[in-house]
């Protein structure tokens, strides 16, 4: 990578040109209902984990979709797979499979090797 002689701070924008959306693609392919999410927050409102710690499935969805993947994996682990979110989601998103697939995608992807 080219280095300039001065420091460029990472922009605050979501860099849609360079962000890595492979995780999202991995999920889309295996769980198409991921595309149906409208970010209503029903899942995160009812969430067992979300009531005890900072964790929002809705937020994770949008971060993955935008390729803002840093720290997502750490968060995903907190899900208890309890299934409440599936029961409230108005769009019939198969939320738990998304959590599992996202974890899988991160594990498989060399870029996020832990």
């Amino acid at each position: 990578m080219e280095k300039f002689g001065f420091f460029i701070s990472k922009g605050r924008q979501i860099n849609y040109d360079s962000n890595d959306r492979s995780i999202a693609e991995y999920i889309y392919e295996r769980e198409p209902s991921f595309r149906r999410c409208i970010e209503c927050g029903g899942c995160s409102a009812t969430c067992t984990t979300g009531s005890m710690t900072k964790f929002s499935l809705r937020e994770l969805h949008i971060l993955i979709k935008r390729g803002e993947n840093d720290k997502v994996m750490e968060s995903l682990k907190k899900c208890m797979l309890c299934g409440k979110c599936i029961l409230v989601c108005p769009r019939g998103v198969n939320t738990r499979n998304i959590v599992v697939l996202a974890k899988q995608a991160f594990q498989k992807s060399a870029a996020y090797a832990i």
Partner: peptide, 22 residues
């Protein structure tokens, strides 16, 4: 006021270690 999950969904997903924590 809500509590932790019983752990069975995790077990069913094959994640015994995590389930054990709950």
């Amino acid at each position: 006021d809500g509590g932790a999950c019983c752990g069975r969904p995790l077990m069913l997903a094959g994640q015994d270690r995590e389930a054990r924590e709950l």
